[in-house]
Design a protein around this nucleic acid. Structure first.
Length: 261
DNA sequence: ACGATTTGACCGAG
DNA sequence: CTCGGTCAAATCGT
C-alpha cells in the first residue's frame, strides 16, 4: 500500500506525542487518498512504515473503493510491520509472528481473548472474542490469520471495542457468567486486571489520532454514507499496535473515554 | 471444578 | 453450492 501512494501530499496530520515519548507518529495521507477517502467514509487503511508494510492482506470482501490510505511513520526501532484497514468498525493490522522456541504466537495486545472458532481459510484463521463477553457484555472480537504470502506475518482484525473496559458495571448474566464474587465486583480494575485508569488528560497517540481522524472525516462519514462510522477504534488500535510491544500505560489509555465522551 | 482450546456442525449471505 | 462466522460438545490444562 505504501508503494501505491503518490508522493504528493496535500494533507498532513501529526500526532502530538509529547506526552508519550515512546512514539512518534506522523499521519500523512496522500492527496488522492485524501480526496477520495474523506468523501466516502466507512473504511480506513493505514500503512505503517516497517520492513514489510506493503504486504497484501486477504481482505476478500472489502471494497477497495471504500478504502482510506494513510502513511504513518514511526520512529520506534522495533516498528511493527503493520497496516490498519478498517471497514465498518473493524481494524486490521499485520504483525510479525513472534517466535518463542518452536512456538509462534501473535503479539499480546493487552487484552485477554477466548478462541471460539477456527477456519481452514488460506493458512487457517482463528476467531477470538473478549474473554469477558459474558460478564461485561463486551463485544470485542478479533480474527488472527497468517498471511498467505508471508508466513512470518499475522493479520489481526479487530471488530468492536472493549465495552468491558469502558463500562464500570458488569452485565450479569447468571446463566452465562459465573460470578467471580468479591473479585470484580468492587475493585476498580478492568476486565484484564489492569487498573482502571482515571479518565484524566492522557494525550496519547490514540487521542491525538482520534481527533485527527474525526476532524477530517466526521461529517461525511456519519451522514451521507449512511454507514455507521466510528473513527475512534482506528486511532485506538493504531495506538495499540505501537504500544503492544510494550505493556503499560498506552494500552491502558487505549480505551479511555475520549474528552467529550 | 472451572476455564480455555479444539473441531466438526450449523447457518446465513452471496 | 461455497464461504465466512459462530455454536457447542468434547477435550485438555490448571
Amino acid at each position: 500500500m505504501l508503494t501505491e501512494l503518490p508522493p504528493s501530499t496535500t494533507f498532513f496530520g501529526t500526532a502530538d506525542l509529547s506526552e508519550s515519548p515512546q512514539l512518534s507518529l506522523e499521519v500523512q495521507p496522500s492527496a488522492a487518498a485524501h480526496s477520495e477517502a474523506f468523501a466516502g467514509g466507512g473504511e480506513a487503511q493505514v500503512a505503517v512504515g516497517g520492513a514489510s508494510s506493503g504486504r497484501r492482506s486477504s481482505r476478500k470482501r472489502w471494497n477497495s473503493s471504500h478504502e482510506r490510505v494513510f502513511q504513518i511513520s514511526c520512529c520506534r526501532t522495533n516498528c511493527w510491520h503493520l497496516r490498519i484497514a478498517r471497514k465498518e468498525g473493524s481494524v486490521t493490522k499485520t504483525v510479525p509472528v513472534l517466535r518463542t522456541g518452536n512456538m509462534e504466537i501473535p503479539p499480546d495486545d493487552g487484552y485477554t481473548w477466548r478462541k471460539y472458532g477456527q477456519k481452514d481459510i488460506l493458512d487457517s484463521r482463528s476467531y477470538y472474542r473478549c474473554t469477558h463477553k459474558n460478564y461485561y457484555g463486551c463485544e470485542a472480537k478479533k480474527q488472527v490469520q497468517r498471511l498467505d504470502d508471508d508466513p512470518c506475518t499475522l493479520e489481526v482484525t479487530y471488530c468492536g471495542s472493549h465495552t468491558c473496559k469502558t463500562s464500570p458495571t458488569p452485565i450479569r448474566i447468571p446463566s452465562l457468567a459465573r460470578s467471580p464474587i468479591g473479585k470484580d465486583e468492587n475493585d476498580d480494575t478492568n476486565c484484564h486486571g489492569h487498573p482502571q485508569a482515571a479518565p484524566t488528560t492522557t494525550p496519547f497517540t490514540s487521542i491525538q489520532l482520534g481527533n485527527w481522524f474525526e476532524g477530517s472525516s466526521r461529517q461525511e462519514g456519519q451522514t451521507q454514507s449512511g454507514r455507521d462510522v466510528d473513527y475512534c477504534p482506528v486511532a485506538e488500535l493504531a495506538d495499540a499496535m505501537f504500544s503492544s510491544g510494550s505493556s503499560g500505560s498506552i494500552m491502558d489509555a487505549m480505551y479511555l473515554p475520549r474528552p467529550g465522551n
